[in-house]
Amino acid sequence: MIANYGYKDGSGEYYISIDTDKCLQCPVEQACTRACPKNMFEIITDDYDDQVAAIKQAHRRTLAYDCTACKPAGGYASLPCASACTAGAIKHSW
């Protein structure tokens, strides 16, 4: 399943997409939870009893602000979460 966490508002479309099928084959256990400087990722048991990554509820409404530091303007060449996820499950819409 691809789970899109986020929102669209007047300033743009802010979604983090997690391909949970790729999560299941995660070669580096829970690397996303350790890579995010804001500690936005968590591992949940989804409705199909799979252990998958998700964005914590508290951050889902503030992605535009929470992720800003990791964008190129913050000095990062690539997103820490997407780079840590070697399975390629994490994508940002902006």
Partner: peptide
């Protein structure tokens, strides 16, 4: 009936 992909608006 299983979910393949979903999106909601968490904010508004």
């Amino acid at each position: 009936g299983k979910v393949v992909d979903f999106a909601g608006n968490e904010k508004c």
